[in-house]
Computed example of a mutant assay.
Amino acid sequence: MNALHRGAARATTTAPGRTTRHSFSFGPHHDPANLGFGPMVCHNDDELDPGAGYPDHPHSHLEIVTWVLEGALVHTSSDGARSVVQAGQAQLLSAGSGVRHSEIADAASGRCRFVQAWLRPDGPGGTTSYSLGEAPAGADGLVEVVGGSALPIRVTGARLLVARLAAGQAVALPEAPLLHVFAATGSARVGGLDLSAGDAARLSDDSAREVSANGPSELLVWCLPR
């Protein structure tokens, strides 16, 4: 079945300098009917003030994909790795058996907005690794940034594609058992569902094979196994 999840219905967590909107059950916002979609167990939409964010905290047994929409996000981990993820870039963190890291909006780049998804890997443990990918400005149609021929992810069949579409532009969606389409900006129609900014479509109907933009839009499309 195809389902539309409105952005306005997401649970929200606020703290000094940051606002997070959760698409799935998360922390104190427990919802046993909304624990995930395939291997995806978290899909957060974060807005950070310059210099604000998440201080040092742990992760393990997760594949964490961060897509920056605005500003830049400084990532620093316990093993000494440091990266600055710019708008239009994705970072893939394979947490492996465990890592601690921080995520802070780069003060020089102003306000930061990013979307972060957590996926259960095929198996627990392993070493921690980091990689960066991007969808270049001006790229047309769907651009693969994680999985497939892009950044390798430890979830068989998982891929993240980004589409920046003009009004009226349509693209064919890849074949996958499950598709998660998030309207980061703009509005679009997919699988008979109308998405506004912040909305997501969870698709398992094979007939949903095209997405069309009602206006200038940036869409995040996850292909997922069941």
Rank of each mutant, 00 (worst) to 15 (best):
V99H: 02
V99P: 07
V99M: 01
H101E: 05
S102L: 01
S102I: 06
S102Q: 03
E103Q: 10
I104E: 07
A107V: 12
A108R: 13
R111M: 09
R111P: 07
R111W: 00
R111K: 11
C112N: 09
C112R: 11
C112P: 11
C112G: 02
C112A: 14
R113M: 06
F114D: 07
F114W: 03
F114K: 01
Q116W: 07
A117G: 14
A117N: 13
A117V: 15
L119R: 02
R120I: 14
R120S: 14
P121W: 02
G123H: 15
G125H: 08
T128N: 11
S129F: 06
S129I: 11
Y130K: 11
Y130D: 11
G133A: 15
E134S: 15
A135P: 04
P136Y: 01
A137F: 12
G138E: 10
G138V: 05
A139E: 15
A139L: 08
L142T: 00
L142R: 07
L142A: 07
V143P: 14
E144S: 15
V145G: 12
V146P: 12
V146T: 11
G147V: 01
G148Y: 02
G148K: 08
G148W: 01
S149L: 12
S149V: 12
A150N: 12
L151G: 14
P152A: 10
V155L: 08
T156K: 15
T156D: 15
T156P: 12
T156M: 09
G157T: 00
G157R: 05
A158Y: 03
A158I: 06
R159Q: 13
L160G: 10
L160T: 12
L160F: 09
L161K: 10
V162S: 10
A163L: 07
A163I: 03
R164F: 08
L165D: 09
A166D: 15
A167N: 04
A167H: 11
A167I: 00
G168F: 02
A170N: 07
A170K: 02
V171E: 09
V171M: 02
V171T: 05
A172E: 15
A172D: 15
A172K: 14
L173C: 01
L173D: 02
E175T: 15
E175P: 11
A176N: 04
A176E: 00
A176G: 04
A176W: 04
L178W: 10
L178G: 12
L179A: 03
H180K: 13
V181Q: 05
F182S: 13
F182Q: 12
A184R: 08
T185D: 13
S187W: 00
A188L: 00
R189I: 01
V190L: 03
G192K: 00
L193M: 03
L193R: 00
